[in-house]
Design a binder for these strands. Sequence first.
DNA 1: AAGTTCATCAACCGCCGGATG
DNA 2: CCATCCGGCGGTTGATGAACT
Length: 226
Amino acid sequence: MKKPAGYGEKRSTKKRVGCEKKFTNKGAWSKQEDQKLIDYIQKHGEGCWSSLPQSAGLLRCGKSCRLRWVNYLKPDVKRGNFGEDEEDLIIKLHALLGNRWSLIAGRLPGRTDNEVKNYWNSHLKKKLMRMGIDPNNHRLGERASGTSKSFESKDQTSNPLISAADNNAVLDSTCGSASKTTSSLPDLNLNLNVGAPSVDGQMQLSEANSHKELEPAPFTTLLLFG
DNA sequence: AAGTTCATCAACCGCCGGATG
DNA sequence: CCATCCGGCGGTTGATGAACT
């Protein structure tokens, strides 16, 4: 269901901590605020988010400005429904990367991590569940636990590949990322030619594996969607 | 028509890691 | 080293409209 323009404008403030108090404006962005942010970034470029609000005359914290720009105002942000190819790609990448939304979004030109994450939570998780696949570990025939709100893969041990591979390596926070990765990651042979519309059109193993605490790839979805 | 539940998604928060002094 | 700042990330919240009763 599509929200009308100006959706959420009356969004009120909830508990607010985090941003400094001098940045009093929170909640939905007004058109004027958007315009200020766009104007400023067009003039000065992205960056220096912490000082941007003051310079741009916005009563927002830098984080909020960055988020608004990246997720909504940036000219190359693609809005609208996800195509089937995009869906497949997200599912495949999620199987490989877990909830690494920024990495996944990086393979989907014009899509933001927030958008991908929302789409996953509202559509793709359910789609996989309907297909009998546990969206947490992409395994067939495993009942996904909990409701749509609560089965994010916080519990890494629920991942069969992690738990099977080396629980100690995962649980021992003193382990370096490299050893952690190699100990919990099977040799996936990830010359992942998944048709990502990225520059080189391929998912590079080095990139995926270089990410710390990479959650390994379950295979069911790869098989189903491959 | 009115009330309730569900689905969506913008925006928030806390945390983390890298850079810098 | 240690402290601080900043940018970025992932998880979560809650306002809203749609669908349902």
